[in-house]
Simulated scan of single mutants.
Amino acid sequence: MALSIGDRIPLATLTTMTDSGPQPVESDEVLGKGTVVLFAVPGAFTPTCSDDHLPGFVLQADQLLAKGVDRIACIAVNDSFVLDAWGKARDVGDKILMLGDGNGQFTAAAGMELDASGFGLGTRSKRYAAVLEDGVVKDLFVEADGVGLSVSAADAVLATL
Score class of each variant (00 low, 15 high):
A2P: 15
A2K: 15
L3H: 00
L3M: 10
L3Y: 05
I5E: 03
D7M: 06
R8N: 08
P10D: 00
T18F: 07
D19P: 11
D19K: 13
P22D: 04
E26D: 15
D28A: 12
D28V: 11
K33T: 15
K33S: 15
T35M: 04
T35E: 01
V37K: 02
P42R: 08
G43R: 08
A44S: 12
A44N: 01
A44T: 10
C49N: 04
D52Y: 09
D52P: 02
G56K: 10
F57Q: 01
F57N: 08
D70I: 04
R71S: 09
R71N: 10
N78E: 09
W86F: 12
W86G: 10
K88D: 14
K88P: 03
A89W: 01
R90Q: 15
R90C: 08
D91Y: 09
G93Q: 06
L97G: 11
M98Y: 06
G104Q: 01
A110S: 13
E113K: 11
F119P: 04
F119M: 15
G120V: 09
R124V: 13
R124Y: 13
S125A: 14
K126Q: 15
Y128T: 00
A129G: 13
L132Y: 10
V136R: 07
V136P: 10
D139T: 14
L140M: 06
L140Y: 05
F141D: 04
F141H: 10
E143A: 11
V151P: 10
A153N: 13
A154F: 09
V157Y: 03
V157A: 00
T160E: 10
T160F: 07
